[in-house]
């Protein structure tokens, strides 16, 4: 019995050690809601994107533009300011908006930011290296009619082990020529976290 006891103890320790280090990873559906820490997560981004897409496509600004000009509006995505207390990547939902615009076929989207600069650099490179028939021209870009901008704000209230977090995501579309705001949409998310 005396000799068996240390062996049993060692086996127990070994089993505990291996079970604690056994990491399990499984793929889950991207629509599944999993809340772990109470911070901003993929579900929040998805809900924001869904609501903003529904709002932006159903508001009268689109029909008004079509009626006035007879053409589809052209949109450029500007900056989204994150003034919240967390790291929130706005591109997750701005991309969803762009995707909805393009898929609908009712709105045109032009490239912005560093990607646009890269395209322009490539065009500049083509002026020196491509054949005359395939070289793309300067000054033929499509000018945007509207710019999409936004801001993310958050308010947190905590007491002992309880926490309430409120996020407000505001997106707005402005006419580049007249500065007129033609659409404002928002998504509000409130969470109660109990530790």
């Amino acid at each position: 019995m005396k000799t068996l006891l240390p062996i049993l103890m060692m086996a127990l320790v070994a089993s505990l050690w291996t079970s604690s280090c056994n990491r399990q990873v499984q793929r889950i559906d991207t629509d599944t809601t999993v809340d772990l820490s109470g911070r901003w997560n993929d579900t929040d981004a998805r809900l924001t994107a869904a609501e903003l897409v529904t709002e932006v496509m159903s508001q009268p600004w689109l029909d008004n533009h079509m009626r006035r000009t007879g053409e589809r509006p052209v949109i450029i995505v500007g900056m989204v300011e994150n003034k919240s207390h967390e790291h929130i990547e706005a591109e997750v939902f701005t991309k969803e908006l762009e995707k909805a615009f393009i898929k609908s076929g009712r709105v045109r989207v032009v490239q912005a930011g560093e990607k646009r600069s890269q395209i322009r650099r490539e065009r500049a490179d083509q002026q020196e290296n491509s054949s005359a028939s395939t070289m793309k021209q300067w000054g033929m870009e499509v000018g945007a009619d509207y710019m999409l901008q936004g801001s993310i704000n958050s308010i947190m209230d905590a007491y002992k082990r309880k926490k309430v977090i409120y996020y407000q995501i505001d997106m707005e579309m402005s006419n580049i020529e007249t500065n007129e705001k033609v659409w404002i949409g928002d998504k509000k998310i409130k969470k109660f976290v109990k530790n």
Partner: peptide
């Protein structure tokens, strides 16, 4: 020389981006 609807200041833009071509190929 300009095409119809081409921006008359296109050459200015080209001159600006021509100077940025140094690292362009490395980023592709």
């Amino acid at each position: 020389q300009l095409k119809p609807d081409q921006n008359p200041r296109a050459q200015e833009s080209y001159a600006k981006y021509r100077q940025q071509l140094e690292n362009h190929e490395q980023s592709m």
